[in-house]
Amino acid sequence: MRQFLTETLDQLTRADGVRGALLVAAEDGLVIAEAAMDGVEAAPVAALAASLAGRLLKVAETAGQAPPALIHLEATEGGLFIAIGESGLLLVAVTTADANAGEVRLALLDGAGRLS
């Protein structure tokens, strides 16, 4: 199991512009596994990403919409991608500002699909 998680995260970090990848427990915002978090602290990213995902899921529910499969937060110096898995897991990628968003999305959704 551990090796499977590591492989999934390693595959994600091979996408252009991905600085690090995390597997996070959605309910408590704790890190389950991480890969290549270059200069980024994993625990704060996990806690804040889980909080953001939880709030956006509530927004979607309140609006009567289907839950989002992927969240993309774009900032001036980088990006945060969160794929919401079916088993209470979040797959999170921290990227540079010039990352290929399409490639990261595909890699995240592929990884989240394998985790479900």
Partner: peptide, 8 residues
């Protein structure tokens, strides 16, 4: 909130 946020 969550355990992760509280610890952070």
């Amino acid at each position: 909130t969550s355990l992760g946020l509280v610890q952070l």
